[in-house]
Design a protein around this nucleic acid. Structure first.
Lengths: 187, 187
DNA sequence: GTCTATAGATCGATAGAC
DNA sequence: GTCTATCGATCTATAGAC
């Protein structure tokens, strides 16, 4: 029987949920060991630089995951419309239709902004620019594409904040529906 | 010469900026005393129940301020269109055109969500419902009004997250402009 | 690799002088 | 009301056994 957490990659996934739920300062090592089942020995074996390295690894993994599953499909040269469609589907699944919040957003609003600012900035700018590029290839002007891309990313983040605040995931679903509609149809 | 902080009300205003910038767990008493200039003696004199009472007082003050300056104008029975206009102006000023973030949003995404959940929920539902009521009185159907109100509050919060993340307040200004446009004109 | 024990700093909170 | 001193708890991180 395999252990639940046998390597660094598994540890990162478990850490992500802790940081997502409690933020950076709210995630004490005591809480981390408890929620992940990993002892301090294991944690400092995988992440010699401690909590900051854990958070860095988590942010890096989120970045990697979005690059592969969200940003890359948007940049697919053959089907911009299809890439955008897929983005909405993937995002809906990733955030569990509004039950999950965005870890990068949590870090952006929290006290960890100064610590991880560069990575946070890059995550959102990469997303916005990839979406703008796809929109442009559906026929929008540069300005329309940039503006619409920003509107979509803003709308997603805001919907996650409100869904969490009001404990109502449907807020997120409704926002996704509105945002999809706001995009000029193309085929 | 008057002291900078002579009463509880002034303390609350100073505390708000600390919590806004560092979140709940990120605002240690050491940081609070340093940033506000208030000693622990004074803080515990004003807030006998400590840090949690400080945060409660700050949230209460934000609630009170928005009720007076944002929600009430929306509910003004004579001029729904004018109330909505004023809401955008007031919100733009309050968030310093995107340089400031929403303290309630910070608490909502942070680990303080469980502690202050009821108040956070109420803040956003009051806002959304007041705006929906105003929109309805401009002639929108119940459903259009609710949907548009949600879109606006979501858009504002998302824009604050992105403006902070990308260190670009203009993201907030652009979002406000789009949201104003999304509202059916009325006079 | 993972455990226990613990160091050293910082946490929120309190006491008592003034 | 505000200060300094300090409590016990908790924090991040490390050491050393296995």
């Amino acid at each position: 029987m395999p252990r639940e957490i046998a390597e660094r990659g598994d540890a990162v996934a478990a850490l992500a949920e802790v940081f997502r739920e409690h933020g950076y300062s709210g995630s004490s090592l005591a809480r981390i060991t408890q929620q992940t089942g990993l002892g301090k020995g294991s944690l400092y074996h995988f992440f010699p630089d401690g909590k900051e390295e854990m958070a860095e690894a988590v942010l890096e993994e989120v970045d990697r995951w979005f690059s592969e599953h969200v940003f890359s499909p948007l940049l697919d040269p053959v089907a911009p419309g299809r890439g955008i469609e897929r983005m909405f589907e993937t995002v809906d699944r990733y955030f569990r239709s509004g039950e999950r919040i965005c870890l990068v957003g949590v870090f952006a609003l929290g006290d960890s902004q100064s610590r991880f600012g560069a990575r946070i900035n890059r995550y959102f700018s990469t997303w916005t620019e990839a979406l703008a590029a796809a929109l442009k290839r559906t026929g929008l002007t540069d300005e329309q594409a940039s503006e619409t891309a920003e509107e979509v990313v803003v709308g997603i983040q805001g919907a996650l904040v409100l869904a969490r605040s009001r404990q109502d995931p449907k807020i997120f679903s409704r926002a996704l529906r509105r945002l999809k509609r706001s995009i000029p149809v193309s085929e």
